[in-house]
Design a protein around this nucleic acid. Structure first.
Length: 875
DNA sequence: TCCTTCACGCACGTC
DNA sequence: GACGTACGTGAAGGAT
């Protein structure tokens, strides 16, 4: 017998929250509702032994009931933030248990439960509904039971038809009529004033339902009651309507999807540890036997010759390689899964097959991959084109929740409860011991990954749609990944000779400085060792320590700057550090990774890493090439066009984050600055210090700039005080003055935090999300950090959205033009190109146009474009 | 026992 | 605030 258990998520969480004291884990997150919910869940799993399981949540916001009656739930108190922060944690918990959860816009959890219950009952399931809400009693019939929490969460009452009859003297359907007459204060359903439970039951026993009662008012006993019914006919009908659970919600999940097949032991254990539910660890049993349990069988075939039948659309593909630098890594095998079967194709068989190559290049043959860019670039190095990537699992996982530390297949598989997949580390080992396993094992692993991809693709695609993130995924990030892949493969030329010359110069200067410093210290020591340097400065030379780190004295630049003047050695150390950084990170670092033959460096952009939606760049990191100090800026002279006579072009957004802030906050004064194209820092100084433009001093502008900087990066009053070298109190006052000058910015900041506490996440203009469970933390630092993040992420993230959008459009425009120009790099608010001299002007016009119009805001976007014979000269 | 590898903290480059 | 890299350091791991 199939048995479906439906849990009213919000209701149970709410009960648990109020039934238990405010527990929290060591991080300071409140966990009492999560804990209570978990104990209830474990109890349900043990006692009910469901074959199918669903937890329904309210989607928040407004439902179809609000359309009928605006005041619906109007008296309900706002969910306490200590509870709302726990809802995402409960979501995570359910994911770890591989239990389906669902929420639908416009509908309440009740309606989702009602719909599923009725459908399942019709199909012969035994159905149990678990809730704290008596409303749901109306669903009871011979196949549906409702379990109501009575006190706390462990004491419950189980209602079938007989029990309802016994308790109310009514049939389950009459529960709706009961509500219609007596109303419900907690949902602000009015009912008939003056009619309570007793009267309502009496009326219903006599007349069966609201309609009959109203049609037979004459027969009702009691003059006052008659009057009340007469006056409130419409209210009674409306109340009944509101109390009726909708059983025809258009659900996107089929009953089959709700099958519960047990949970992933590791995932649950990890989560229990994170939530500090040590006492519950025992309740989920010993891990040994379960963990050792064999993976479910996935049949596969090792392909020795590729045939047409292997290559159908859609197919899931795994292009496996060891080591993370896909510019150099060898492909060790190919996994393939589609309707016809699961396959392992040895690399040689794949890359040498024309059939395979044609299939890979065919735009119309849909492919699902995990980290598509990795495959695209690796194959490009083998001169194999990969087109038609229809789904990137890693990208989907990242967009759904960027905070998950790992977007590895095995983790996604265990989180989403599909076919289990081994961790790559388990199969290949790591570090020095990493290697390729026996073919059979490799074949099994890759086929399994490919097979799992189909299942996971469906799940994640649905989640993206539920979150309204599908277009972000399909129209922005997916196309961008291909573009980034091309940029990485193309690479950027560095002039190795120039680097070597600069390096030679630096190393002599470093050697001289080293001698000088040793002389001043009176001993030789390793200047690069903070430990040794600390001893020399604060013990041998007895300079006053300014700051400590966990391990000893701090010798950071801002500490040394405070000591400057007290000893000549300080200045030399600062210079040594500066030059040393240039030499080892940039000169040697770049020379190490530049291709011997072409002189090009090929970075890798990580598109699925940052919490804000920015890219990051590694191996080498080309997003932190020096510019601030002239000495370092010279490094940019080594970045040159890859063709003779071509030019480097740099196009950067001016103040994009502050423009985004002006747009989303709608602050008129701030918008004015951009509409009138004023210097934003001067304008800020004018507004904050209440002075005219010509009265703004350098110091005022500097302070204003620091605050703007702080707003953009979400720093704290502490951070600002460090930047401006003022006290924390002064910094706080300064921020307050700033916010007073820009009231709508202040309102936005408050609002975004409030909203995030409610929903558990913040989002950007293009629906990129970031969950912030720490908003409910009792730990001040944690909570403050989350609050600043809530304010800052939509700003920085939207800026990231905009430049990504610009890149996608730019790439199309370039492809459709005959311009001899290549997009090479993205540095957060800047795009770097190389261009043939005859197309320089055209490119500049095009890129300005594309970037400024990538997304339309209430303030103009401004782009500065510059060109020159090297990146340095594009200034 | 020695040598290599690894994880971690510190410092500093960019936006 | 977010990133990535280089370096030094002490501990763990592996070979001898």
């Amino acid at each position: 017998m199939k048995k479906l258990v439906l849990i009213d998520g919000n209701s149970i969480a709410y009960r648990a929250f109020f039934a238990l004291p405010l527990l929290s884990n060591e991080k300071g997150d409140y966990t009492n509702a999560v804990y209570g919910f978990t104990t209830m869940l474990l109890k349900v799993l043990e006692e009910e032994k469901p074959t199918h399981l669903l937890v329904a949540f309210d989607a928040g916001k407004s439902t179809f009931r609000h359309k009928t009656y605006a005041a619906y739930k109007g008296t309900r108190q706002k969910t306490p933030s200590e509870l709302s922060g726990q809802i995402p944690m409960i979501h995570k918990l359910l994911d770890a248990f591989s239990i389906k959860r669902y929420e639908a816009k416009e509908y309440e959890a009740d309606d989702i439960i009602g719909t599923q219950a009725v459908e399942a009952a019709k199909k012969g399931y035994e159905v149990v509904v678990i809730t704290g809400d008596k409303d749901l009693l109306q669903l009871v019939d011979d196949r549906i039971e409702v379990v109501l929490t009575r006190k706390g969460i462990t004491e419950v009452d189980r209602y079938n038809e007989a029990k309802i009859e016994e308790r109310y003297g009514l049939t389950p359907k009459q529960i709706i009529d009961l509500k219609g007459l007596m109303g419900d204060t907690s949902d602000n359903i009015p009912g008939v004033p003056g009619v309570g439970e007793k009267t309502a039951i009496k009326l219903l026993t006599q007349f069966s339902d609201v309609e009959t009662v109203l049609a037979s008012i004459n027969e009702v006993s009691g003059k006052k009651l008659k009057e009340r019914l007469e006056e409130n006919k419409e209210l009674a009908i409306l109340s009944k309507q509101l109390a009726t659970i909708m059983t025809e919600v258009p659900l996107e999940t089929a009953l089959n999807d709700l099958a519960y097949n047990g949970f992933d032991y590791q995932a649950v254990k990890e989560l229990f540890k994170a939530y500090a539910f040590n006492s519950l660890l025992n309740r989920i049993g010993e891990d040994e036997d379960q963990q050792e349990e064999a993976l479910e069988e996935v049949a596969f075939e090792i392909v020795s010759e590729i045939k047409e039948d292997h290559l159908i659309s859609p197919s899931a593909l795994v292009i496996e390689m060891l080591g993370d630098n896909y510019h150099h890594a060898d492909i060790i095998g190919v996994g393939l899964a589609n309707k016809n079967g699961n396959y392992f194709i040895p690399t040689k068989v794949a890359v040498e097959s024309t059939l395979f190559q044609t299939f890979m290049a065919d735009e119309k043959k849909e492919k699902y991959l995990f980290d598509a860019k990795r495959a695209v670039v690796a194959l490009a190095w083998q001169d194999i084109e990969l087109n038609g990537v229809a789904f990137d699992l890693q990208m989907a996982s990242y967009l759904l929740d960027p905070s998950l530390s790992s977007h590895e297949m095995s983790d996604i598989a265990s989180r989403k409860g599909s076919v289990r997949v081994l961790e790559d580390e388990t199969v290949y080992g790591k570090g020095a011991k990493q290697g390729i396993p026996a073919e059979q094992q490799l074949a099994e692993h890759l086929s399994r990954k490919a097979y799992a991809m189909h299942v996971l693709k469906e799940i994640l695609a649905n989640e993206l749609k539920e979150n309204e993130q599908y277009s972000l995924f399909a129209e922005l990030e997916m196309p961008l990944s291909v573009i980034l892949g091309r940029m990485e493969k193309e690479g950027i030329k560095v002039d190795r000779g120039q680097l070597q010359t600069m390096g030679g110069d630096l190393s002599t200067r470093l050697a001289d400085l080293e001698k000088e410093i040793h002389k001043e210290a009176g001993e030789t020591f390793n200047i690069n060792s903070p430990k040794q340097l600390g001893q020399v400065l604060f013990e041998t030379l007895e300079l006053p320590p300014v700051k400590k780190t966990k391990t000893g004295y701090s010798t950071s630049a801002d500490v040394l700057e405070k000591l400057a003047g007290s000893h000549p050695i300080i200045e030399h150390i600062l210079l040594y550090r500066q030059l040393g950084k240039l030499y080892s990170t940039y000169i040697e670092g770049l020379l190490k990774v530049a291709n011997e033959e072409t002189g090009k460096v090929h970075t890798r952009f990580n598109q699925a890493l940052t919490q804000t939606g920015r890219l990051s760049s590694t191996d080498p990191n080309l997003q932190n090439i020096p510019i601030r100090l002239e000495e370092g800026r010279k490094i940019r002279k080594a970045f040159v066009p890859s063709h003779d006579d071509w030019l480097m072009v740099s196009a950067d957004y001016s103040q994009i984050e502050l423009r985004v802030l002006a747009h989303i906050s709608g602050d008129e004064r701030m918008k004015e600055a951009f509409l009138k194209n004023m210097d934003i820092h001067t304008k800020t100084a004018m507004d904050v210090f209440h002075v005219e433009e010509d009265e703004v001093t350098d110091q005022m502008r500097r302070s204003a700039k620091a605050v703007n900087f702080g707003i953009v990066y979400g720093i704290s009053d502490y951070g600002l005080s460090q930047n401006l070298n003022i006290t924390r109190k002064e910094a706080k006052e300064f921020i307050d003055r700033y916010l007073a000058s820009y009231p709508d910015v202040k309102a936005y900041m408050e609002n975004v935090v409030k909203e995030a506490k409610k929903t558990g996440y913040v989002q950007t203009l293009l629906a990129r999300r970031r969950y912030l469970p720490e908003l409910a933390s009792s730990n001040f630092n944690q909570r403050s950090f989350a609050e600043r993040t809530a304010m800052n992420t939509p700003i920085q993230g939207t800026a990231a959205d905009i430049i990504k959008q610009a890149m996608v459009i730019m790439s199309e425009e370039l492809a459709n033009s005959s311009l001899k120009a290549t997009m090479l790099l993205q540095v957060h608010d800047e795009l770097i190109f190389e261009v043939a001299p005859e197309d320089e002007q055209a490119l500049k016009e095009l890129v300005t146009n594309v970037m400024e119009n990538a997304l339309s805001l209430d303030v103009p976007l401004q782009v500065d474009v510059l060109s020159g014979s090297s990146w340095y000269d594009a200034k």
